[in-house]
């Protein structure tokens, strides 16, 4: 089953400094029937104004992955990590038994666009940790490039869950196949362009939640498609 969530139907938050499109209920967006997809709890498509961000706050028992799409993010936490990450990097926080962090856009002029993703971990009470990795953008082209996975490697942050986040930049007319194992879920989010999955077309910022489709045929539309595919339980 392919359930499409078009961008135009997604809830929109506008706080001036923050423009956000949450995929799942979050903050002022209340929809108990849309609170999770498997272990996935949050997908916020956030635009953060220059010099603004989120003050110090806690998290626990959540795997938080941030994909920076444009601009920069400055991270600071109580574990002693202070770092600026930029487009092309992926940040992961294992909140575990508790972490305090703050995030903001350090630029005076450039906006920050990111996807923030939260997943329930494989177990509670893990030691908190923080990591970033830079992926090779050339390897995105016409391939599914893992950027976060249970088993880390170069350019891949480690998540404490049996899941993989892929990014891909598919050229116009090109196709990719993805095999969905039985009982697994696929969350698909088109960042730019348009993409067809098993004949269903998704435009920019549309998403799909996919179950029970053993073979996924992914094809870029008239222009190249930049998208995220998450394979999760």
């Amino acid at each position: 089953m392919i359930q499409v969530y078009p961008e135009k139907t997604r809830y929109k938050v506008d706080l001036g400094w923050l423009k956000s499109r949450p995929s799942f209920q979050f903050g002022e967006y209340v929809d108990p029937d849309n609170s999770a997809f498997g272990v996935m709890r949050v997908c916020n498509d956030d635009y953060i104004a220059p010099g603004r961000g989120f003050g110090a706050h806690p998290h626990s028992d959540m795997e938080i992955v941030t994909i920076i799409l444009s601009g920069q993010i400055r991270h600071e936490d109580n574990l002693g990590n202070i770092e600026i990450a930029s487009a092309g990097e992926v940040q992961r926080i294992t909140a575990g038994s508790g972490v305090i962090h703050a995030e903001y856009n350090p630029s005076d002029t450039e906006g920050l666009h990111l996807l923030q993703l939260w997943f329930m971990p494989r177990e509670r009470g893990l030691p908190p940790s923080y990591e970033t990795a830079r992926y090779d953008r050339a390897k995105l082209v016409n391939a599914l490039l893992p950027v976060a996975a249970a088993v880390p490697s170069e350019g891949v942050v480690k998540v404490e869950q049996d899941m993989t986040i892929y990014l891909s930049r598919l050229e116009s007319g090109r196709e990719l196949a993805f095999r969905q194992e039985a009982g697994r879920r696929v969350f698909l989010f088109v960042i730019e362009g348009s993409l067809t999955v098993n004949g269903v077309t998704l435009g920019a910022l549309d998403e799909a939640r996919i179950t029970d489709e053993p073979e996924l045929a992914l094809k870029a539309g008239g222009e190249q498609a930049f998208f995220m595919l998450i394979d999760l339980p």
């Binding site: 003050g55 110090a56 600071e76 109580n78 508790g98 305090i100 703050a102």
Partner: peptide, 13 residues
Amino acid sequence: AQSKIEYVPDRYL
């Protein structure tokens, strides 16, 4: 609660 963390928000960022 199992544990706690004390913090001063003004000291971040």
